[in-house]
């Protein structure tokens, strides 16, 4: 039995009829076509599906779309318009990705970190990224990218 849900995704109001068992990530990818949010593990471990819900990082594979009724959702597609967001630019500059599968989740997680902690130390970054798994990079360049991205964001970017 479908029911209507409404929310704001990347600044745009959206309303749809969904079955209550629909996951937020399924709604974002399959109905809104926002395929930048990835599904890696599908078991709340890897963080590839990470998006912001009302400004906080959340694993969208472990949230029902109904739980996001009325919420503001930000996905990697909405992070910036036109130019890369400073955190995306830092990942590019510092080779913070290889295959890129984990990257949208890493970037969204990193942006949330910098919002909560504008000048994170290396330890803060590694600790925060505990819930984001990367199978390629070995993490060192991701940490460098996040350090640089945090500096570039200067604590002032709305992200």
């Amino acid at each position: 039995m479908s029911a209507p849900v409404s929310m704001t995704v990347n600044g745009r109001k959206v309303t749809a009829n969904v079955e209550p068992r629909t996951l937020l990530v399924q709604y974002l990818r399959d109905q809104l076509g926002l395929t930048g949010t990835h599904v890696g593990c599908d078991t709340s471990q890897c963080g590839a599906c990470l998006v912001h819900v009302d400004g906080k990082s959340v694993k969208s594979c472990t949230m029902l779309v109904a739980q996001a009724e009325g919420a503001e959702i930000l996905t990697i597609e909405g992070l910036s318009s036109g130019e890369l967001h400073p955190m995306q630019a830092a990942f590019k500059e510092h080779h913070g990705l290889q295959c890129g599968f984990c990257t949208p989740g890493m970037v969204m997680s990193a942006v949330d970190l910098v919002k909560q902690n504008p000048a994170p130390t290396e330890h803060d970054i590694r600790d925060w990224l505990e819930g984001n798994i990367c199978r390629c990079t070995g993490y060192h360049n991701i940490v460098k990218a996040v350090e640089a991205g945090a500096k570039a964001m200067g604590g002032s970017h709305a992200g």
């Binding site: 709340s44 963080g47 990470l50 819900v53 906080k56 990082s57 959340v58 694993k59 472990t62 949230m63 997680s109 949330d112 970190l113 925060w128 505990e130 819930g131 984001n132």
Partner: peptide, 9 residues
């Protein structure tokens, strides 16, 4: 507990 995204929910 867990990681930041787990702690947010």
């Amino acid at each position: 507990i867990g990681d930041p995204a787990v702690r947010h929910r």
